[in-house]
Write a protein that binds this DNA or RNA. Sequence first.
RNA 1: GCGCCCGUAGCUCAGUCGGAUAGAGCAACAGCCUUCUAAGCUGUGGGUCAAUGGUUCGAAUCCAUUCGGGCGUACCA
Length: 545
Amino acid sequence: MKKKIAQILKDTISLKNYPEVGFSLEPPRNKSFGDLSTNAALIIAKKVGKNPRDIAAVISETLSSYSDIFTSVDVAGAGFINLKINDNLYLHTLTDILKEGRNYGKNQNNFGKKANLEWVSANPTGPLHAGHGRQVCLGKSIANLLEWSGYEVTREYYYNDAGNQMNNLAKSLYSRYMQIFDSSFPFPDDGYHGEYIKEYAERIYADKKDSLKNADNLSFFKEFAEKANFERIKDTLETLGIKHDVFFSETELYRNGDIKNLLADFKDKGVSREEDGAVWLKMDRDRFQKDKVIVKSTGEPTYRLPDMAYHINKIKRGYDYIIDIFGSDHGDTYKEVLYGIEKAGYDTSCIKVIIHQMVTFKSGSESVRMSKRSDNVYYLDDLIKDVGADATQFFFVMRAANTHLDFDIELAKEQSDKNPVYYLQYAHARICGIFRNAELNFGKEICESEFDIKKLAEPGAVELLKVLSRFPEEVESVSETLEPHKIINYLNTAAETFHKFYHDNRVLDADNIDTTIARLKLCEAVRTVLRNGFEIIGINAPERM
RNA sequence: GCGCCCGUAGCUCAGUCGGAUAGAGCAACAGCCUUCUAAGCUGUGGGUCAAUGGUUCGAAUCCAUUCGGGCGUACCA
């Protein structure tokens, strides 16, 4: 509906020979100003140097002639045009919502396009810790958003298994295994201290007894640990309903020659140089402080080179849109990686990098420590166990990725009205309750009856429909910015408007069957929008609470 | 030092491609359940939008500087 009105406004502007401008068309903060408000006249006025109110008057005169759409067109303030929209238009959105059902809100703006979302991508050196949760949950929502705007989405997980850390992992496990026989067996200085390594050692011992005591290489331990860690990571992700389509290993880039080829490519193009036995990528001094090492003097590439090769691999696989999610600790390094890809001659404009800030956990007023070094790590598993999958998902997605997040475990755990997750879910459960009662008291047929739209004339119902009609626009804009917290903000107003309606208007009324039927349809529409919104952010829609 | 992100109500945060009287949840206070779930609804109080200067019809929003916090600033990933 907004699109249609924007078009009318645009046509009016060109009809009056005003220059084409970018204007806003939004519901005003203050509802008494109307349903939509535009600053078009102010923008035009600036451009042509005339009084904005005069221009607004000219435009609004034409707009008023669309009397079937606008019930009032007013010029206000400095030159805003405020529009009130005919309630009948909103009543018809109800029919649309009921017809589209689970698809209401989806759009096909990117139909036929392929997107690749890479996230989590934690190396398999141990279980995911609670801090990983932010990107795990963000990615889940973002993948959904992409799908809701028509993309075919590949969910991808990239892991570095070629570097030193996997060797450390193997050494750590070997050491724990040997400690079963000799508790004084040395543990590597930079080893992984987690309890899970001891568990793996026990499992190996149970199966192999002491047959690996004199192993001449650690490949068994490496493979065992990698496999076990991945199993646990995948289990954790599955608890949250996440399944990656592709697990891409760094080793693959060595095997298929991508890394070697890229290095040769850099050399051919003259963008790399050698110094002190290492290979450096020449960086643009306006943007970077110094050149960066891509191959160490030991002959091993740094993480940058495989990362570049990996992204080039993704580009070559033909995606229209490539999205990475990283923590703020990668805030600078991804720029180096993109720079390298450009130097290799690839267009990086299809790559979008989402950086999220770090998370601190607290329990009430106490902060929860998340040290990687000690045994005392708060894992993502623990968090999910403590607060539940829905609250985990909700709390991580509730805020803009761009700001630091305080995760209050006590609040998330709280099974009460304090907890913002329940506010939304409760609205859904309430509606389900109404339908249970409707079937009980009026029979199943009542839900399928034809309804009379005129029975929804009361302000609460119209207000509710106005909010519901915004959902597709909301999805559309959020799937461009990839900021799922805005969906939550929207759902909050939807839930709030419903709770208000519920409080003021009784749905089931034996004396007014027609009204009952119409209101049931309205409830069905609210339930649809809530359910669809929940699907995007990735939480359940409970039928009772 | 340099780079990126942030600073909005007592707390946690929305709002930021410039728009009208800056919002929500929690906390505080006062009300509403013999009728579909009170995990709800209604109302009150609470603000130098970190500070200063600038740009203009108009700034929480853009620019500059300062202060404060986070993350980087490796031949770690």
